[in-house]
Design a protein around this nucleic acid. Structure first.
Length: 663
DNA sequence: GAACGCGCTC
């Protein structure tokens, strides 16, 4: 029994006791003994610092080193190594610099082991200059020095430099080992650089390293990222043994390549072979199902996961939450919110962000905002989500205020942020703000606008009726204009009745996406409005000849527990009579108030009265009327629309998700 | 006494 902590031991014995306590997992007792030694030797310091780092208390380890220095004890190489490692783990750049100074101060800056550890430390602190300096100053560099400096560039988001350094290493006659290879292969994955990946695969085979678990799982991941799933499978098949990571990687690879059937088969095979699944396995397969639209499978596997004794964690919840991002899911979504709350997952920035997004998508902007406001910390994605939420709901001014708040709080915007901000500007007709935002991207935030941003700007100008400007904007784009850009212009040409530009935009769209029915319908409608009947029917004919059909629009509204669906001109609802009478009354009241319906929006060649009728039977209008008539103000009316085919698949999945989660 | 591979949100 290790009951009483001994005192007054000679140094070698106290070290022995400290080690015994650490090995038995009692770090606290080791510390108590250490604190009782009046003058601990350097070995004791080293052992304790290392133990703290290994057991996940790197900050405490760094503190311990600070105590040592406060006592003006001169560190040796071993203590410094342990401190450098602690600092690397806690990624504390300020302490990192202090320790680095100590290394120099005590004349150890040309030591290879310490130098390598310092490079790794700076890499983990994302301080390239520091790592580079240590690397340059090393008289002798080995494979670890080179690998560490490569990893540093990878960590700091400079994959191309990492690849360059990796090649330099070879040119300097240093042969990469398995660690170097599994560090550099993810770079090929990120850059989708199949050529470099293949080259490295060749090196692996020539040097007989293909059975290394780290190397082969990195190879599988590389081939998967480069969309060569067959190559990935070949690497996997050649492995005589498969550890859990290799299984996870190959399953993720199939999901990422949209082959979910094969992924699920491998998942079954993995379980049949008795592989010991970990959290990554369960989350990979649940996330993979969700990414591939297999919500039902995801739910089933969520059940299996819990049967196997794994409690869904933040990542599981985050993956499954998108099942709840539709209007009819609000109830189930709330239950999941409860689960997230009960399990302290609100501390998790990713899970909470998914929750913020879910509420916004369910039409609950206020709740979404309250959840966001309660977040203890917010990263770029969290800010992006709340900005996009406001943009979706047409709160352009609020989205811009949030953007300022984001920048002021020191969180860096990225390209998604600007997509959100610019689309907010377009929905709220904030043209000047949109333009100034767009020009500030490159100038103030070093973000180069991509196709999506240009399309947003075309939308900003188009919706404001500045069609010629929008067209010039498209012509000045540095890249090939996307369907989004031309589509924004075409839509606005319909609203502002601009035939010439409409024709130009549509012709580009027919090239880019020849099978999108919307473009043909829009152009035909533009012709109808301009009374260019011949061209209108020609467009319709073009569409028909290509075998393209427009799917009917559809809207639905939830009243208490039931979802009611409407298509345009729908008379199938029990209350259809009441709905149409209500809409007619409203129409009459509007006319009296001086509002005349814009019948230009009806494409058929009908009489004025019939045209007004057609406008009244729009599917969204029917759904809103039904909601107003049946909800009696007891809650807000939330209507959502999609094309009919997508609607058949809708279902309150959130409830299923909530049911599947067991406390 | 040093270095490496798998899971989540916009």
């Amino acid at each position: 029994m290790l009951s009483k902590i001994p005192t007054n031991l000679p140094p070698h014995l106290s070290l022995k006791f400290i080690k015994t306590y650490i090995n038995s997992g009692d770090l606290g007792r080791a510390r108590q003994l250490f604190d009782k030694i009046p003058d601990p030797d350097l070995r004791s310091w080293t052992v304790l610092i290392t133990a703290y780092t290994r057991q996940g208390f790197a900050k405490e380890a760094v503190k311990l080193y600070t105590h040592l220095r406060d006592r003006s004890i001169q560190p040796d190489k071993l203590v410094l190594l342990s401190a450098v490692k602690a600092c690397a783990t806690s990624a504390d750049l300020i302490k990192a610099k202090e320790i680095s100074e100590d290394v120099t101060k005590f004349g150890l800056c040309s030591d290879l082991l310490l130098g390598n550890a310092l490079i790794d430390m700076y890499g983990k602190c994302r301080y390239i200059e520091g790592a580079r300096k240590v690397f340059e100053d090393l008289q002798v560099k080995d494979v670890i020095s080179w690998t560490s400096v490569c990893s540093c560039y990878v960590n700091c988001g400079l994959p191309r430099v990492a690849l360059k350094v990796f090649r330099e290493m070879g040119l300097n006659g240093v042969r990469p080992n398995s660690v170097s290879l599994s560090s550099i292969l993810p770079v090929c994955s990120d850059l989708k650089c199949l050529n470099s990946g293949r080259e490295i695969h060749g090196f692996v085979m020539k040097n007989g390293m293909e059975e290394n678990m780290f190397v082969s799982s990195a190879l599988v991941d590389m081939y998967s990222s480069c969309l060569c799933i067959r190559q990935a499978q070949l690497v996997f098949d050649k492995m005589p043994q498969r550890d859990i990571v290799l299984w996870n990687v190959i399953i993720t690879a199939y999901f990422a390549n949209a082959e979910s059937e094969n992924a699920l088969n491998l998942f079954r095979q993995m379980r049949a072979e008795g592989a010991k699944l970990n959290y990554a396995s369960w989350n990979a397969v649940i996330g993979g199902c969700m990414q591939n639209g297999r919500t039902q499978d995801a739910l089933e596997i969520l059940g299996l996961m819990q049967d196997s004794g794994f409690k869904p964690n933040q990542i599981t919840i985050t993956s499954i939450l998108p099942a709840c991002t539709n209007l009819e899911s609000l109830r189930g979504g709330r239950e999941i919110h409860g689960y997230v709350f009960r399990h302290w997952f609100l501390e998790d920035i990713t899970a909470t962000t998914a929750l913020v997004f879910m509420y916004a998508k369910c039409g609950q902007l206020e709740v979404s905002r309250r959840v966001f406001d309660m977040m203890p910390r917010r990263d770029t994605v969290a800010w992006n989500t709340v900005i996009i939420a406001n943009s979706m709901h047409g709160n352009g001014e609020e989205a811009l205020l949030l953007f300022d708040e984001m920048v002021n709080s020191g969180v860096k915007p990225n390209s998604v942020t600007f997509t959100g901000v610019l689309s907010a500007c377009s929905h709220s007709r904030l043209v000047d703000r949109g333009l100034s935002m767009f020009y500030s991207m490159d100038r103030d935030h070093a973000i180069e606008p991509d196709t999506e941003h240009y399309s947003c700007m075309v939308d900003v100008l188009s919706r404001a009726g500045r069609l010629e400007e929008a067209y010039r904007f498209i012509q000045d784009m540095p890249m090939e204009p996307s369907a989004g850009a031309w589509g924004a212009l075409l839509g606005a040409c319909r609203v502002y009745k601009h035939v010439d530009l409409g024709r130009i935009a549509a012709n580009h769209l027919f090239e880019i996406e020849p099978h999108n029915p919307g473009n043909y319908v829009l152009l035909s409608n533009i012709f109808v409005t301009a009374k260019l009947w011949a061209e209108a029917s020609e467009t319709r004919k073009l569409m028909k000849d290509k075998g393209i059909r427009k799917l009917p629009g559809c809207s639905w509204v939830q009243v208490r527990n039931k979802i009611h669906t409407f298509v345009a001109g729908d008379k199938s609802n029990d209350q259809s009579d009441v709905i149409y009478r209500f809409l007619n009354d409203m129409g009459e009241k509007m006319r009296l108030a001086g509002y005349l319906p814009d019948t230009d929006f009806v494409l058929q060649d009908l009489g004025q009265e019939e045209k007004e009728d057609t406008l009244c039977s729009h599917s969204e209008k029917l759904a809103v009327a039904f909601g107003l008539l049946n909800l009696n103000g007891e809650s807000s009316v939330r209507v959502s629309s999609r094309n009919l085919a997508a609607t058949f698949a809708k279902k309150d999945l959130a409830k299923d998700v909530a049911c599947a989660l067991r406390d």
